[in-house]
């Protein structure tokens, strides 16, 4: 039974997306959820192309200057480590992130 659960969890993990494995996995324990980060980016960059570009730039080269967090939050959470994902994986993860939280089609 224990072996079966292990195998299932391994299989599920194999099936999970880059975004789920690499982004949600860490952020689910963070006090600032994924959606909050998304709206902070949207508030600063507006369009899909600019928002995605800013996210990619920050994750590839995280710096105080290109973070959307306020100085207070930066002080509390520190600058994250540089991503280990390839360019393609990162773009895929960001695209999925955009699709989940985008405003288009959600307003009535």
């Amino acid at each position: 039974m224990r072996n079966l659960i292990f195998v299932l969890s391994v299989l599920l993990n194999l099936n999970a997306s880059v975004y789920q494995k690499n982004c949600v996995a860490c952020h689910k324990n963070s006090p600032v959820k994924m959606d909050k980060f998304f709206y902070l980016y949207l508030l600063k960059y507006s369009s899909a192309i600019e928002t995605k570009y800013a996210m990619k730039l920050y994750l590839q080269n995280p710096k105080k200057e290109n973070s959307v967090l306020s100085p207070e939050l930066l002080k509390r959470f520190k600058i994250k480590k540089k991503t280990t994902l390839s360019k393609k994986e990162l773009e895929k993860a960001i695209d999925e992130y955009w699709e989940i939280y985008k405003i288009f089609g959600k307003l009535k």
Binding site: Y45, S46, L107, K108
Partner: peptide, 29 residues
Amino acid sequence: QINFDKVPRIYPRDKRFKSAIYDSVYTKI
């Protein structure tokens, strides 16, 4: 925006006028 997950996602309406929102690349939101 602040309460996007707490309130119904209904675009604000006003009797005095009609409105629309567009992003920075002129795409209609």
